[in-house]
Design a protein around this nucleic acid. Sequence first.
DNA 1: AATGAATGAGAATTCATTCAT
DNA 2: CATGAATGAATTCTCATTCAT
Lengths: 212, 212, 212, 212
Amino acid sequence: MQVKEQSFMLESPMPAHKANHTKDSLRREALRLFVAFGYNAVSMRDIAAAVGVRQSAIYNHFRSKQDILVELMQSHMETVLAAWQETLPKDGDAAAQAEAFIRFHITYHMDHPEDVFLAYMELRSLEPDRKPAILELRDQYETVLRDILARGRESGQLHIIDPATQARALLAMLTGVTGWFREGGRLSREEIIECYAQTALQSVGLTHVQGG
Amino acid sequence: MQVKEQSFMLESPMPAHKANHTKDSLRREALRLFVAFGYNAVSMRDIAAAVGVRQSAIYNHFRSKQDILVELMQSHMETVLAAWQETLPKDGDAAAQAEAFIRFHITYHMDHPEDVFLAYMELRSLEPDRKPAILELRDQYETVLRDILARGRESGQLHIIDPATQARALLAMLTGVTGWFREGGRLSREEIIECYAQTALQSVGLTHVQGG
Amino acid sequence: MQVKEQSFMLESPMPAHKANHTKDSLRREALRLFVAFGYNAVSMRDIAAAVGVRQSAIYNHFRSKQDILVELMQSHMETVLAAWQETLPKDGDAAAQAEAFIRFHITYHMDHPEDVFLAYMELRSLEPDRKPAILELRDQYETVLRDILARGRESGQLHIIDPATQARALLAMLTGVTGWFREGGRLSREEIIECYAQTALQSVGLTHVQGG
Amino acid sequence: MQVKEQSFMLESPMPAHKANHTKDSLRREALRLFVAFGYNAVSMRDIAAAVGVRQSAIYNHFRSKQDILVELMQSHMETVLAAWQETLPKDGDAAAQAEAFIRFHITYHMDHPEDVFLAYMELRSLEPDRKPAILELRDQYETVLRDILARGRESGQLHIIDPATQARALLAMLTGVTGWFREGGRLSREEIIECYAQTALQSVGLTHVQGG
DNA sequence: AATGAATGAGAATTCATTCAT
DNA sequence: CATGAATGAATTCTCATTCAT
């Protein structure tokens, strides 16, 4: 990356006391930069500069650059899983649950595009010992959809060949939104959700679509 | 990355006879490493070591690290486009063309997972002046599908809300195979192709599926 | 060094009651660590962690890291000199004094191996303005032995070529114990003292040895 | 340490070709600096500056700072052992061998004070996995003397209580020369050797001393 | 007396690239 | 065509120290 940060450039030294939100700022800016340029292309200096702090200050809040990444990914995945737990319709049949999941997934992703993008793109940047924990969480989420598809297949409500494969295909498709969606484009948020929902539902053999 | 290679370590300098395929080896290993670890995480030394040559030797074949990336991406995209040109059924209707494209796309991706993955994941690593040329090629490909979907929508053969959005959704889904497919898994190549084909075709409102 | 200690890791801040012996703990742990790893290899954080306190707390007790070192060295050397003053046989002849010194020296060193080791090994780590004071103390001690040897040479009781050189040789030999002695080894404390005493006394031409 | 090294300060870029003696210079300067300031107090920049090269150039010759240290220590110890093998009188009795060893040891140490000092003072700076190899070499050397003393004790030629302890005591004493000897001092090289030899020989109960 | 947050300097090491051989 | 040596810039991280609370 590019921006220079040097002592004689910093004008407002910022009272520092009470500035405990530094860790939050670091998280936020790190996420933004990792998404924009990739984990490896972003330096600790870049992150510090974005927050208005020196490089070394980061180490008062995170043990390492890798720790920032892990913390971002982990908290994101745990949040998604928790959010789905609150959303899932306990009593619905497989078709209803599939639709619920698809709508939840798209909506959540459009609301948190950066978290999703990071968790998806930077798995490679995880060090070997940190990877399993994250993959475990990702698998939990994939399993949710796989199980719904499997039940829908057994009940005959869904046209599905292989639940595992199709779950992955669906997630890849839906996750793709984060790659290009920007507020204020040709289509509104709702239109995109509808479009993706129809595509996804059709892909598992559901044709009836009713806007959320 | 990891491997160490330094002058005082290498004993056998390798006879170099018929070593003019070095450039090919470099391309192949660079692709493999970029895919496995990411462009930024791979050093020229890593690439050289994988080929059994010193870093400086790379510069006899490529002007820079960025040039390797660009060359890999560009040749891949041109190859895909050329391959589709040879495959496309000139006289088919939109439904037939959609099915043809979908099958072509999945098949090609399963045959060249690394090229596809690279072109998809490392767009961010392109330097600003190299990016437009690659994006232009990618758009050409996306346009192929978008146009097919648009024609299918007009002809009423496909159930589609927005061709542009749905084209992206489809491509994201299909491209996803490269993320996890490994020869010798639970499902055979053909089964996966069938499964993806059905999912994709259903997603645009086509239900009749006949194995390739 | 190794141990990590950071704010977000420490849960129990420790009641701090009667914690005014902190300075003593700091001295003790600093000594231990300096001896084990060397002054430069030990960080203020290491010392603080060993005591169960934060780095910044150290500065309530010492002005700087260098100050800890100087204080440790200085108090050790003053203690040795004072201890010898209490031990020296005022009226003995050179031979008796030599034996007394040798026994005192070995015994003291075996009782305070870390202080001795530090004073010997970390002279290099003293900043230029702090060095002279310490060297002055060390020379006082060396002079004690040199003078005894010189008198013994004049009186003909000792076989000595050059008192200054031989004093250094003797001190180096005797100081060496601290390098390897560990309580509970093959030989007892007393056996080692006897062994060193005999070696040292023989080295100056005294053969009569009588256990302490 | 102190000296600044920056691009605009370097006047003579030095033709570089044929300058393969860089590694030797690095070894020499590293040794000098490690001895003068201690391993931890010397930076790679210091070493590079002393040789007239950039920091990064060092890594063309050594894998790490630790590697420089290990290489210096190892080659020194192997050289000493080899030198003693050439010196040792195969047929002499224990007393002759003891004298031969003592004279060899002092002489070698006065000729290579820096190597000896480094090997003695910086054992602590070895990383845990590099330590055993060096200690093994040191023990080989110590064993040489211990065996001679043991034989001398059995034959009754030497007055010795415990060969192992006394070997260590002797080596510590003799090694001490490197701590303070500087060419051109009050005593000549030969005088110091004689003085140390007498002290050492007396210490094992040998009185007859004949200058080399 | 202790802490958490901040800092500037500097540590070792890696990187892409150049160039004479 | 390949190499070893060199380089300057940049990397992550550690350090001793300060200071408001």
